[in-house]
């Protein structure tokens, strides 16, 4: 799978600080790519560099393996974090204006807009004034306009901020639907649960540096600490003979069901299969699962880890 965007050694300095310090990112075509990082880490700057809004001091951006040009911008849909609309305009007229700026003809824009308005069930907003829309309503319009010209690459900066859970869900579904139709999606967020749900790849940026990059599954697995959750019939003491093989971190016996749930740590060099076999010998095993750390934990650990360095 080739990369739709390759950022090579991007450095961007502002007068008082460095926003991006030698950041390289590869965004595979067809992926949903999460850009994570604490506030002020440089996510928005990276997005602006990819968008050609900001010119990097060093490094370059490749769009489908060629240096990005102004023409490529028409194949990108960008929803900025801070987004506004002209308050005095009518919704339909405004959407048309933005759509035409993206290179659509008036007729094409009109047809596609009508489709989207029907899909979101907001046909009757067409002649409303923008100032009469709630924040969430305005967000929907902005979303529609962002994806209207069917860009190959979609960039959402903090798309979920300001959305209520219902609309956030709608947005998630639309993002996945767009990916299924062949678009690549980049989004920046603090919302870790959404990362686990919809991202295939992530990059974690902290203090202007790329500190963690890769597939979400791989990252979570590689950050696993060999901790497993075990559930078996019997009391806690039944586990005592296994002390050599593994270390019980915590365990809890439930009298009513007669089940014990425990968290155990297995040394890296131990063979998992033989541990399972041994446990299976000793107790009536109900479940044995690896506890994979959540992105949230990885995020916090990575950020703190980079602080300590």
């Amino acid at each position: 799978m080739s990369n739709i965007i390759t950022a090579q050694n991007i450095t961007k300095r502002f007068t008082e600080h460095t926003a991006l310090d030698n950041v390289s990112v590869e965004i595979p075509t067809g992926s949903v790519y999460g850009l994570l990082g604490p506030n002020g880490a440089g996510k928005t700057t990276l997005i602006r560099v990819i968008n050609r809004i900001t010119v990097p001091d060093e490094g370059r951006i490749l769009f489908e393996d060629k240096p990005i040009t102004q023409q490529d911008i028409y194949r990108i849909g960008y929803l900025p974090e801070e987004r506004g609309l002209y308050k005095k305009m009518k919704v339909g007229e405004h959407a048309l204006f933005l759509a035409r700026l993206k290179g659509l003809s008036r007729y094409e824009a009109l047809v596609r807009l009508k489709e989207w308005f029907v899909r979101f069930g907001i046909e009757d907003w067409w002649n409303k004034r923008v100032e009469d829309l709630s924040k969430g309503m305005a967000q929907k319009i902005q979303f529609i306009v962002t994806v209207l010209h069917q860009p190959k690459l979609l960039i959402f900066d903090e798309p979920f901020s300001g959305f209520d859970p219902i609309n956030a869900n709608l947005l998630k579904e639309e993002i996945l639907r767009l990916r299924d139709q062949g678009a690549t999606v980049i989004f920046s967020t603090h919302n870790m649960s959404s990362v686990e749900e919809i991202c295939d790849h992530i990059t974690l940026i902290n203090k202007s540096k790329n500190i963690l990059s890769g597939r979400v599954d791989d990252i979570r697995r590689s950050h696993g600490n060999n901790i497993f959750a075990v559930q078996y019939r019997g009391e806690e003491s039944a586990f005592a003979p296994l002390a050599e093989l593994c270390h019980v971190l915590e365990s809890d016996y439930d009298k009513i069901s007669g089940l014990t749930s425990a968290k155990i740590h297995i040394e890296k060099n131990e063979d998992i299969r033989s541990v399972i076999a041994a446990v299976n010998e000793a107790v009536e095993l109900r479940s044995f699962t690896e506890i994979i750390p959540s992105m949230n934990n990885i995020f916090i650990r990575a950020v703190e880890g980079s602080l300590n360095k």
Binding site: N51, I53, I73, Y74, I76, Y78, P80, E81, E82, R83, G84, L85, Y86, K87, L98, L101, K102, G103, Q142, V145
Partner: peptide
Amino acid sequence: EKNSRILEVLVST
């Protein structure tokens, strides 16, 4: 326009 952040929306295209 700067305060309403419409510029951010326009600036990409």
